[in-house]
Amino acid sequence: MADTTLVGAAPTHPTTAQIAAAIREERARRGKRAALLKHIFLIITSLVMIYPLIWMLASSLKPDNQIFGNLGLWPSELRWENYTAGWNAMAVSFTRFFLNSTFVTVLSVIGNVISCSFAAYAFARLEFSGKNIWFALMMMTLMIPYHVVLIPQYILFLKAGWVDSYLPLIVPRFLAGDAFFIFLMVQFFRQLPRDLDEAAMIDGCNPFKIYWAIILPLSVPAMATAAIFSFIWTWEDFLGPLVYLNDMRDYTVPLALRSFIAQDSVSAYGQLFAMSVLSIVPIVIFFIIFQRLIIRGIAMSGLK
């Protein structure tokens, strides 16, 4: 209520424009000092935010005895051996883990983008009976924690003989399992003018052709956003591999990292950090390249 009275009152004020101009001037004067304070705050906050990550990077290059009790970031000597030794520290080399992760991630991303864009196209562009109900149900699945469906899914995949393979991780991705991506794409598709579909219809396209020749090419940013998020989340996924993969040769990178701590909780911290750093390198690279898309994607979908 209070805000509406404020808004209502302003235009009737006789010298609104002048006062506003004066305020802008005053603001500009005060602006400089405020801007400085803001920047100091922001810089300190960023440093605090980023410090742990830098510390991890620095520690990955330090000898083990310099990691703890030591604030300094610069190692006395650069221990690149942490990387080479860490890479082969376990019974199976990290080459294998990275290949496994890449395999699962690439297929998951493809599955996600295809199946979710299918569903999104149906929801955003096609008419069919029951559409609104299905859409509501789809949105409800956003709420369901993975833990709730995990056990029955596990039993299902166990019976199918899929445990200890990548199928339980990949097949659901081809069944539009992540409603978040459907929602993101629906939001995007809805912005495209309807006339385009209709012009294409008259130009002889059926719905499949419209999806393929009109909607997809115009949705590259949305597809890319979905692909990037899908990449990041699959790469980081821990619970799925934890449940379904038991043989170390099948491990993905996060699973391998976690065995790393479990297997020797004592000494090789430098190596542990080295592998931790490597495990997030793909994500950081993706983030640096695509941060615009990622940030726009968050604002667009309003999710996660």
Binding site: M49, E236, L255, R258, L272, F273, S279, I280, Q291
Partner: peptide, 22 residues
């Protein structure tokens, strides 16, 4: 971008490992 980076990395095991050591 800087403030968002932890959200991207937060779910990773690497960060969990890091946190433990911190």
């Amino acid at each position: 971008a800087l403030f968002y980076l932890p959200s991207i990395l937060g779910g990773s095991i690497a960060v969990a490992v890091l946190w433990r050591q911190l």
